[in-house]
């Protein structure tokens, strides 16, 4: 159990590093999927199989496929990779990196200073328990999530529409 957690965590961190430093969009996406699956393994290790399943199905499956589609539509070539390499210079990333490290350090220090000692046994919290929570006291949250998805759907279909020709363009709608 512990082994799965630590290995999964390590893989997730390395893959994420690959995501943010990659120059090829497709490679980065694959790295991201790896990272997500690694996190899903961590979920299983922690004893949250429902969340782990959702992570793989929705995140790594649906959302990442969306990304892949978009990257395919854009059809970025070798020029894009060169461009990325050019943009990724030390002076670009040194300040954000330091800032992130400072934040991370602060978080870790705060964590270690907290009332530690609680252990995660890895007992299963099954989908049944989650379902009881969601459709019991949290019903309103589910409704809110539905509203959010609807709003996202409408927005995406509106914003993502491309003008068919110049006349539409002139109308200035999109």
């Amino acid at each position: 159990m512990e082994l799965a957690f630590y290995l999964g965590g390590l893989v997730a961190v390395i893959a994420t590093l690959g995501v943010i430093t990659g120059t090829n969009a497709v490679h980065s996406l694959l790295n991201l999927i790896v990272s997500l699956i690694a996190v899903a393994i961590v979920f299983f290790a922690l004893g949250a199989p429902f969340a782990g399943a959702l992570e793989i199905i929705v995140y790594a499956g649906a959302i990442m496929v969306l990304f892949v589609f978009v990257v395919m539509i854009l059809n970025l070539g070798q020029g894009a990779v060169e461009q990325e390499r050019l943009w990724l210079q030390a002076r670009t990333w040194i300040l954000p990196a330091i800032l992130s490290l400072v934040l991370l350090g602060t978080l870790l220090v705060t964590l270690s200073a907290g009332d530690g000692g609680r252990m995660i046994s890895g007992d299963m919290l099954t989908a049944k328990a989650v379902g009881r929570t969601l459709f019991g006291p949290w019903l309103l949250v589910v409704e809110l999530a539905a509203m959010l998805l609807l709003a996202g759907l409408v927005t995406a279909s509106h914003v993502g529409r491309l003008p068919r020709d110049r006349r539409d363009d002139k109308k200035g709608g999109n």
């Binding site: 300040l95 954000p96 800032l99 400072v102 934040l103 602060t106 978080l107 220090v109 705060t110």
Partner: peptide, 19 residues
């Protein structure tokens, strides 16, 4: 984004110091 993070870092640092 960077300036937002900078602000957040400063606030968190201040909180951590006071902790």
């Amino acid at each position: 984004a960077t300036s937002m993070v900078l602000g957040a870092a400063l606030v968190l640092l201040a909180l951590a110091m006071g902790y």
